[in-house]
Design a protein around this nucleic acid. Structure first.
Length: 378
RNA sequence: UGGGGCGUGGUCCAACUGGUAGGACACCUCACUGUUAAUGAGGACGGUGAAGGUUCGAAUCCUUCCGCCCCAG
């Protein structure tokens, strides 16, 4: 099978430099996955993503199952072909929707019963179903269905979600393995997801239970849902300490630009976040000097690029004043240009982080970022 | 020149026909962490064209003036 992961260097902080090989290309790690929930990174074309150097993106099982439907995508040749994205794709299982669509679902041991946010129709998402959908989509990496709960959570609730996540992980794992036996090969990698809320011992217990299932990669889920950054780091540290060094570690749903290096220093290899794309549409631009809220009146006559240290095509060509105008006028181009810049910025942070690991100065990079983001924009 | 109507924050309008002026948009600011999100929250701005009068109390009623609109000539 065409999957592998290798760590080529570990720096003093614990950060790992490596590469993940998939049937759809090699991805240098640590890496960031732009979020393309509905087979589209909002406001970006696949051409733009390629130009930006994205090597992998994330899509969502729940959303694509509801629309246009995984069977349709399978019929059209799978998600890669459907959306004309030749590089790697990771699909989230719908576990996050268990959390974010809480008013629309009911959780039981068999799975999650959802009412569609689109038309109100009822659907049952089980661990097997989530695995089946992702198989149909043909993503390179599939996530197991997990139960992601809100923070802070009482211990008994965290325990229950942890237990259920482990049972579901086992079911998802065997579903995929059985499918592989029938077809002779594993067409995709499947990652387990550690839960346990903000309880260190529960995090460790969750990791231990998943390790028994011998996943090719492990994710840390249920974090960055409201708890302080230090807690996110503490929980991540508990987990990565137990994970095998030769498997990729994925911290799901993070983070802010200045936090990313911290997670990498905790031994995280991959992460995804809607922040660069969503904030872009809301006129928040990330730069090497901090955040720029481009709608602010102070930028009305600002001829400078969004980020003078940025080499993206937006910063090479357009002024802050123009971007501000596009937002004020409600032009679609505002979202397109802002998203392009933010995704470039995130991918560039990852390039710099990889370089910093090679040179052994990730700690400097991290404190630099924190300082700049504390100082605010120029 | 008659007759009729209307003047309320930047804009468009609302205020049981007397009860102490509100909304939308615009503006300003903030928030977004495995996307139900080109979203959401907050803030500033008028004392009602002007001057008088009636009344406990007027954007609402009366008088005069100013401005705009419509219909007649």
């Amino acid at each position: 099978m065409n999957f592998s992961f290798e760590v080529s260097r570990t720096d003093p902080t614990g950060a790992r430099r490596g590469r993940l090989t998939t049937p759809h290309g090699v991805i240098q790690s640590p890496f960031f996955l732009p979020v393309g929930t509905q087979a589209s990174v909002k406001a970006l074309t696949q051409e733009a993503l390629e130009e930006l150097g994205a090597e992998i993106i994330l899509a969502n099982t729940y959303h694509l199952y509801l629309r246009p439907g995984h069977e349709l995508i399978r019929k059209l040749g799978g998600l890669h072909q459907f959306m004309s994205w030749p590089r790697a794709i990771l699909t989230d299982s719908g576990g996050y929707q268990v959390f974010s669509l809480s008013e629309l679902r009911r959780i039981a041991d068999e799975g999650v019963r959802f009412r569609s946010h689109l038309d109100g129709s009822e659907h049952l998402l089980t661990p097997e179903k989530a695995a089946e959908i992702q198989l149909a989509l043909g993503s390179d990496i599939a996530m197991v269905l997990d139960e992601c709960i809100e923070t802070p959570a009482p211990r008994d609730k965290a325990e229950a979600a942890l237990k259920r996540t482990s049972v579901w992980a086992r079911r998802a794992r065997s579903y995929l393995q059985q499918s592989a036996q029938r077809n002779g090969d594993l067409p995709q990698w499947q990652f387990g997801i550690v839960q346990g809320a903000t309880f260190p011992d529960l995090r460790r217990e969750s990791a231990r239970q998943l390790l028994e299932l011998d996943f090719p990669g492990y994710a840390v889920g249920g974090l960055a849902v409201g708890e302080p950054h230090e807690i996110t780091c503490e929980m991540t540290r508990e987990v990565t300490a137990l994970l095998p060094k030769d498997r990729p570690r994925y911290l799901m749903g993070v983070g802010r630009p200045e936090q990313i290096a911290d997670y990498v220093a905790l031994g995280i290899d991959m992460m995804d976040c809607v922040l660069p794309t969503r904030a872009a549409r809301h006129a928040c631009l990330y730069t090497s000097e901090g955040r720029v809220l481009i709608k602010n009146a102070r930028y009305a006559q600002d001829r400078r690029p969004v980020d003078s240290h940025c080499s993206c095509s937006v910063c090479c060509r357009y002024s802050r004043a123009y971007l501000r105008h596009l937002f004020a006028a409600g032009e679609l181009t505002a979202a397109i240009l802002a998203t392009h810049h933010n995704v470039h910025f995130y991918l560039d942070i990852m390039r710099q982080i990889r370089e910093a690991i090679e040179f052994g100065n990730l700690a400097n990079f991290s404190s630099d970022m924190h300082a700049r983001y504390a100082a605010g924009p120029a």
